[in-house]
Design a protein around this nucleic acid. Structure first.
Lengths: 137, 137
DNA sequence: ATAAAACCTACTAAATAAATAGGGTAAATA
DNA sequence: TATTTACCCTATTTATTTAGTAGGTTTTAT
């Protein structure tokens, strides 16, 4: 399951998409509109800025904003940034790989199935973007 | 990611498959062969027995054994039993559904994508069985 | 200068995961 | 029937992760 943090991240991003013509948006505004603890949200937005998803501006008139078009940000990127691996096992993770002990991966049946699962997930999560989760009319 | 518990469950099941002609297998034997804490494994096997995956026999000559053919046990069943939901969000879970607040699910873009992800996962995890994760030759 | 707003780090609390402990109960065997 | 074997069951402990809080720092517009 996605963490609360990741869910909040998606809510915030959705909000920033809706308001993207309005320039920088205050953390406080997102926090209020989306019912997310302000300080927690602050951390989440900061992570996304450092992760290259958001831009920010300090001082009066400041706030957060998207630095790319929504259709250029795959959902996989957000999930990996906030929650880490998408795979179900470390030994099949592309971005957070860890070898598993006492296991010959080339001949491990679980490894094979879980690789298939990972691929099925990524086929969706790498191709669907923020644009796809925008509120429908 | 799958918990350690679920990973241990799969290791134990794999072992029981290999030894399925030998009658009941001791917890202690699985524990030793697969390097899993005996007491922790005990709990895991018990859960799987209660969940209808394993049978057990007490007393001398006792132990655990599969009560179905490996190809009759989908991986999804094991995962749900040990770790709970397979879906990434409660609002798209088939077996552990929870409505999400302030969200019109029918028009929620995230809900739609995450449903798709769930389906892709289940297409694999409901169809692949223990037989598919048995060690290859 | 002042006020607004993000930045950054540390800390706390709650929840969950992982492991341990230990007596209870049923079955087999002698 | 006594004894041993081995699963049964619940509670407790410990470690890790998640969620949330706190408070000062830096930057920017006016």
């Amino acid at each position: 399951m996605l963490s609360k943090k990741a869910q909040y991240a998606f809510h915030a991003l959705t909000y920033l998409m809706e308001k993207k013509e309005e320039g920088p948006i205050l953390i406080a505004q997102i926090s209020k509109e989306k019912n997310i603890s302000l300080k927690f949200l602050e951390q989440i937005l900061l992570e996304m800025r450092k992760g290259g998803i958001l831009g920010s501006k300090k001082g009066k008139g400041g706030g957060y904003y998207l630095i790319k078009e929504p259709n250029e940000i795959p959902l996989a990127k957000v999930i990996r940034l906030i929650d880490g691996p998408i795979a179900l096992l470390p030994c099949v993770s592309l971005n957070y790989y860890e070898r598993c002990e006492n296991c010959d991966e080339a001949n491990c049946g679980l490894n094979a199935v879980m690789s298939e699962v990972r691929d099925a997930n990524l086929r969706i999560l790498e191709n669907k973007t923020l644009a796809d989760i925008a509120q429908r009319p």
